[in-house]
Design a protein around this nucleic acid. Structure first.
Lengths: 190, 190, 190, 190
DNA sequence: AATGAATGAGGATTCATTCAT
DNA sequence: GATGAATGAATCCTCATTCAT
């Protein structure tokens, strides 16, 4: 057991525990203690590594955003035509871990957090802009109106995300969400 | 000062104070004490009238939803053509007190609350369905595809709501949001 | 409805409500509000009539003691022989409303109350002495050792009272308790 | 000062503080804060170790019962004849810390607690049965009527306990109480 | 690297009590 | 005679955070 490298392991464990605990409890009222226990460490260690609860929360947010970005790049890399690129973007939003109930919970929580925490707000805005920028980029070859359509599509994605997240029955339906987005793009490009 | 009938007055004051305090603090970590002070009463009275903090929060949510519903009815009443009706619906979402930063904060908070509170979830779903239903109704004379377009439009509205709420600079731009929705409906109906 | 005399009626209702609520909740943590509601009046009225919660509790204690004393006198009046008198005393302790679970609860509560409230302690001591005195009086014709036997019998009665009150199954068995006391007196007098 | 192992020390201190504070205040309305302060720790620590006030109270009860049981075993161990054994049992009830005013207060409090708390009731019943069982065992060699005499003696012990606890003047008189019990046993066995 | 120990600060909630009407 | 209105004070409990080891 190497003494070094524990930091990365622990930090990862804590960040993941944060996300899953927020998912489990469904909101902000997760305690550092719960997170630490879920990560198999003491709450003191969480502070040791992250400094404060808010920092831990922020780290979790960054992790989700990073994962989302990586997934986006991955999907985009395999897409050749503009339309494929658009589909790839839509699929990223509603696919992978990003559409898991626990991550959805985390997103909502972060939206609220952004109301009072500048860093959280900034992080969220980065995400929003990146989504728009990705869409604009993909739309450019297809229309002169790329920016506006991109913004609308981005809002549509966020709205579908929230709506599906709150649906009463069972897990959110990713395929349908993607379909809706593609439908919109189709008519917007017509 | 009538001896009796204070209840209604106090309840109203407390509900309003709840909304504005959530807006001020930007989230759920508002204390009953803060709310009570803002309403000019003791925190004991808040409990006397509402039983618990959660019930007070729920009451605030109901008040917002009721106000939103009333506004929708009002706007709809003055709309004659289908298109006017659609515009009325869009305007309601981004108009009146509903797009005030404090109410936006409250909305976000309620979304989070709905993750763990069944009643809050139910309330939110009622809102979602009503929006879709209003849109469907208005769309019916214009298209055979009313339900699907209505659902997409509803999601778009929610997404724009959140996006604008998070915009970094100044108060959210209601007119532009309405425009975006109408734009979508135009192309969808084309 | 006569306007006068309400005081007596309300006071009675409140005292009875106090006893039954203590019985229902099983202890001291009865609130004035609960008692008042059970009595069909406002808690403000309870204070109006009794001044404070402690005074109301004391009044309830006095009522129980008075009822107990009256019952004792009644039973004693019909007893002719010394032995009958002893049996009457025993029967009083475990009979009538005095052995009802709610009254038992009240007794225990009063014992605790007596630990800190001088008046309650005095009241309880009056009861204890009266019981001993009644027993002594009845025993005098039968033995030269009346005081000592009376004291032991009194303690035995109290002990049986508590033990039966805590018995796990069903309502306390009055007859058996009386039998035990009479058994003791028999052997003590032999 | 060992870093670890504080738990046992603190728990002990808190349990003892609970008993003595109940004794000092004479009843249940002891606050966790008072207890904690008496134990030299913060009230938060009390909750940390015991979870809730009720659990702390229960732990105190268990401690008293355990101490009582240990004392009984000790006394019994040195008693050779049946009569010695009976005397040992009586002495245990009124001896050691068990007859200290503070412990008496605690006992009374527990009786009240048992009215609403199942665990407390169970604990108290265990004590009652153990006392009867000890007495029965000691009486068996002396009489065919052991069970009944044991039950009466047990009730007598409880009654004397309460009566002496309430005596107005000074500390309870243990010797006299023991004498009374032995007197009863003598005549009952005659 | 990691944690048990400990707490200060704060929050929801309860309740006896007061008072104007 | 009676009560709705209102609150101050207290209590239990939670939690992020610190620190010695």
């Amino acid at each position: 057991m190497p003494r070094t490298g524990m930091m990365a392991i622990r930090k990862d464990a804590l960040v993941n525990a944060t996300i899953s605990e927020i998912g489990r409890k469904g909101s902000h009222d997760v305690t550092v203690g719960q997170i630490a226990k879920a990560a198999g460490v003491s709450s003191a260690l969480a502070h040791h590594y992250f400094g404060s609860k808010d920092d831990l929360l922020l780290a979790a947010m960054r992790a989700i955003l990073a994962e989302f970005g990586a997934e986006a790049r991955l999907q985009l890399a395999g897409a050749l035509t503009p339309k494929d690129r658009l589909a790839a973007i839509a699929r990223t939003s509603f696919g992978g871990r990003n559409f898991n109930p626990e991550v959805v919970s985390a997103w909502l929580t972060f939206y609220v957090m952004a109301q009072r925490d500048t860093q959280a707000a900034r992080l969220l805005r980065v995400y929003q802009q990146r989504l728009v920028s990705n869409l604009t980029h993909a739309l450019r070859p297809l229309t002169a109106d790329a920016p506006r359509i991109a913004q609308t599509a981005a809002a549509l994605i966020d709205g579908l995300y929230i709506r599906h997240a709150l649906a009463d029955a069972g897990p959110p339906n990713a395929e349908e969400a993607v379909l809706r987005v593609m439908d919109y793009l189709e008519v917007a490009l017509a």
